[in-house]
Design a protein around this nucleic acid. Structure first.
Lengths: 347, 347
DNA sequence: GGCTCCCCCTTGATCGATCCAACTCCCCGC
DNA sequence: GCGGGGAGTTGGATCGATCAAGGGGGAGCC
């Protein structure tokens, strides 16, 4: 095969092959080569074949910078990369980024990472935007009061958010999100189906809309099944220690037989308390976490957990992004995807 | 401040500001504006000030594509992004990528992610290279027989590897790595200092040079302290289940009081076995893992673990990359960094 | 034969930056 | 008064692709 020929055999030429080189060698004009790459339909089959052969022989690949300059696009999607927080079990970013890279690649895009600047929340965005370094952004942290989405909207910069605009009803941007309430609904119903009636909730503090959303799933499912929730809920910080404390208090005061948690981190706390009290997770007390983190997966007693469909989220985001960039009307302003429940030994 | 003026106030102009716009408005030539940005020393102070003012007023930022085309650089570093393997506790990539993004940013580079193509291990590299989309690569998985490093070397493509070239003595490329043996040496010595003498090793199969390196640290430290290692080592696959089995066998046959593991995943297996046997980690039996994963951090009984200095690795890689791209002689062909030991309740 | 039409391909201009060589001041020395 | 020189500035050429018109030649028709 010609393609692998030049690749395995020789090293890269000092000056990369250009479109003009291919044109000369194939005995056609530059534009024809360009068309062979971008609009093959315009060429006669035999010409197309000849040009393609030459392209393969020379190992030609269009110069990105030149193309970008002319077409005013970069085929790059900007993503502000924030690492997983140490000491928590949340590894959503890692999985999401990978899914995004895959989905983008299939659409002909690459992902450009830039760091968060604590002092200037829109600094990174601003630079990339004004230097036309990226075509669009994916914004991941749309927590309450986050200025990025509003700022980007105002700049008329194309972007899609992973996460609903909780605070702002007038927010006019496009988003994709996972239905957290549906996730906890799955979890709660699963526990009810297993015969539990006293199912406790351990979630985040009230100022987290994501946390309240997840809590609502638990609450509504309990009520829909005619079960009481009195004294069965607590809201704490998202650290293992707090989860453990909350579990201890709930066990003492309300005697639940199962726990639904807003995160795997909190679920770990519950498991800790069970351990100390010599209670077996899954047999004595059921526990369900949220995010299907590595911790849930490798924990000696596998932790049942709600798993976000991050692959689908990425695909949906890229799909929306393409429509946005093609100036096609975006049908839905927001897309909500359903999570699933990964059942393991802890429930 | 002028800069924030245009940013908060108005939206992005339909056509971005160009260098020519700035030149006209400031009453100087294009070259002078270019110099103001790239070689401020060449300008007279008053001219420089005037141009800078105009740049700020118009919110000008050089067009990336045009600059890339002319200078034949992209200020991008390519990184093949492979996600953390599901079912293991390894989250090295996440932390490393973040560190790399930070370090690159400080050097004026951005990180471009591209996916792994299973069928063509060098496919992604080849495309980016020939389309001059990136200036250099960071290669992360230099496991035995990985063709990427060799291929990139042959193409004379600038790259730095995170990981030593284990197999190939003639490999002439530049690398940065973490001294795994030093890590397990730390772990083993720590256990010896705590009074343990029968310290077992659970590592990977023999075909992993990284695993053998880590094993060597344990072995040499044991011998250096006059301790026997007979019957105290086992090599298994890197999954929780295998770690648990190995621990069970070792406990039955050799009665160790401590375990050093090649990964947090295996350490989880050990903890599992301890749990089943009602043995308390840290009090009855000590356990040390490797990688300081989230699992080690949030596990109810905090897992003592060897932590790789990924921030330093990233800084070192970027430093080397810059030298490489500036065609400066690279002093050392390889740099080996020391890990540290994070001590928790399990030891 | 001459004309139009259409398909296929070619030519020149362009994107916005930097490189290069030249050019203008202005000061200095002889 | 004139040549030399350096700092500061200028205009034109260039990177390599795509855009927008501009041919050329064969088929089809009168």
């Amino acid at each position: 095969m010609a393609r692998s020929d030049h690749r395995s055999g020789s090293q890269l030429p000092v000056t990369p092959t250009t479109l003009a080189d291919v044109a000369e060698r194939a005995g056609v004009s530059r534009q024809t080569v360009s068309n062979a790459v971008n609009n093959p339909d315009l060429l006669r089959p035999d010409t197309l074949e000849r040009v393609r052969q030459t392209i393969a022989e020379l190992g030609y690949s269009p110069n990105r910078a030149a193309r970008n300059l002319r077409t005013r696009t970069s085929s790059l999607i900007g993503l502000r990369f924030t690492p997983a927080q140490e000491g928590t079990a949340n590894a959503t970013m890692d999985r999401f980024v990978h899914s995004l890279v895959e989905a983008s690649d299939e659409a002909g895009y690459h992902v450009l990472l830039f760091p968060a600047d604590d002092e200037d929340p829109v600094g990174g965005y601003d630079n990339l935007l004004r230097s036309t370094a990226v075509d669009a952004f994916v914004v991941t942290d749309t927590y309450l009061g986050n200025p990025q989405a509003a700022w980007l909207s105002q700049q008329r910069a194309p972007f899609v958010a992973f996460g609903r605009p909780w605070d702002d009803d007038v927010a006019r941007h496009v988003w994709v999100d996972v239905d957290g309430a549906a996730g906890t609904r799955l979890a709660t119903q699963h526990l009810i189906d297993r015969g539990h009636t006293r199912i406790a909730w351990i979630g985040w503090r009230k100022d987290s809309p994501i946390g309240e959303d997840r809590r609502a799933g638990w609450l509504s499912t309990m009520h829909a099944n005619g079960l009481s929730t009195t004294g069965l809920a607590s809201r704490v910080e998202d650290v293992v220690h707090s989860g453990a404390e909350a579990a201890a208090v709930l066990l003492d005061e309300s005697e639940p037989t199962a726990f639904v948690c807003a995160s795997d981190t909190l679920a770990m706390g519950v498991l800790h308390t069970l351990w100390i009290r010599q209670l077996a997770p899954g047999r004595d007390i059921a526990v369900v976490g949220f995010d299907d983190s590595q911790v849930a997966q490798v924990f000696p007693v596998g932790l049942t957990s709600v798993r976000q469909p991050l692959e689908d989220v990425a695909v949906e985001i890229v799909r929306t992004l393409r429509a946005l960039l093609a100036h096609q009307p975006v049908e839905a302003r927001g897309v909500l995807l359903e999570p699933s429940l990964v059942i393991r030994e802890s429930s």
